[in-house]
């Protein structure tokens, strides 16, 4: 693995955000969400489920030797692309990660920064998002335009998985086994969140989706640091990750993508 000397972006734990960091992140999200063209949140979030359905879940083509597991690489590319556009208005912000197995999550569930409806009288952009996916109407067929707010209906926080489950993931040595186990953990969080997060069609529009997936990506990265990439099948390394201009091997090293994960981080401009 190369070093992170050149990394520009530090993704931090949302529970450790300082008030000014949270304000900057919310402001950037607000601007990002207000853009309705192909630079905006509505468009890019739509790569996952409706209307584009590029997302990759579980291994496919079980009957062949390929058995491609692109769940982790595809979502890494997706998060990177979305984050680049988020930072268009403020290069100092990054996406946070949310650990649903932490003691704090077991007491408060989804982070308060995402569940507060308004901040100082203004709508909290992390609370929800208005999905708008128009479809041309066809006579005789149902209107399936999506024009709705995302919402959550979480189960009790006591039903979130324990940290020991995540610890057990790091013990796996084979990428395939690890990927399947981590994906099941990921599925469990979607089931737990309920509402828009529980449907592939709408999940990518909920702002908590990306904090959840940054955590999944973080767990994969920690696993990579421990076990490397040698158990990743060679025959998937050159597979493309549409609609992004990456192949699997392009996203194996997050330092090459320009980011890293930290519990917390701070910097000061000195010159």
């Amino acid at each position: 693995m190369s070093s992170n000397n050149s990394v520009a972006i530090i993704r931090k734990n949302i529970s450790n955000y300082l008030p000014n960091e949270l304000l900057d992140f919310r402001n950037a999200m607000e601007k990002f969400m207000a853009i309705r063209d192909n630079r905006g949140y509505n468009h890019i979030a739509g790569f996952h489920g409706a209307p584009d359905f590029y997302c990759w879940h579980h291994q496919r083509n079980d009957r062949t030797v390929l058995r491609a597991r692109l769940f982790l690489p595809w979502h890494r590319a997706y998060l990177k692309y979305l984050e680049d556009h988020l930072r268009d208005s403020n290069t100092q912000v990054s996406q946070p990660w949310w650990d649903p197995s932490s003691p704090l999550s077991h007491s408060e569930g989804i982070p308060k920064s995402y569940t507060t409806r308004t901040i100082s009288g203004r709508k909290n952009p992390l609370f929800n998002f208005r999905i708008f996916v128009p479809r041309s109407s066809v006579e005789g067929l149902p209107n399936i335009t999506l024009d709705e707010d995302t919402f959550r209906d979480p189960s009790p926080s006591s039903e979130l998985p324990e940290p020991e489950l995540v610890d057990s993931l790091y013990e796996e040595e084979d990428f395939g086994i690890f990927s399947d186990k981590l994906e099941d953990y990921h599925d469990r969080i979607h089931v737990w969140c309920g509402g828009s997060m529980a449907d592939v069609i709408t999940a990518g529009f909920d702002p908590i989706f990306h904090a959840h997936h940054c955590n999944i990506d973080r767990i994969w990265w920690i696993w990579q640091l421990r076990h490397g990439n040698s158990t990743m099948p060679n025959n998937i390394l050159d597979l493309p990750l549409p609609p992004f201009n990456y192949t699997v091997k392009d996203v194996l090293n997050i330092y090459d993508l320009g980011y890293d994960y930290a519990t917390a981080s701070a910097e000061v401009i000195t010159g």
Binding site: A50, H57, N61, V138, L141, I144, D187, H190, V191, I201
Partner: peptide
Amino acid sequence: YYIFGHGGCYGDVGHRDIKPR
């Protein structure tokens, strides 16, 4: 086990048809 389900079909006729490989 946990399944992150599609939540039904959003597309038009044929969108969800899986062709045998």
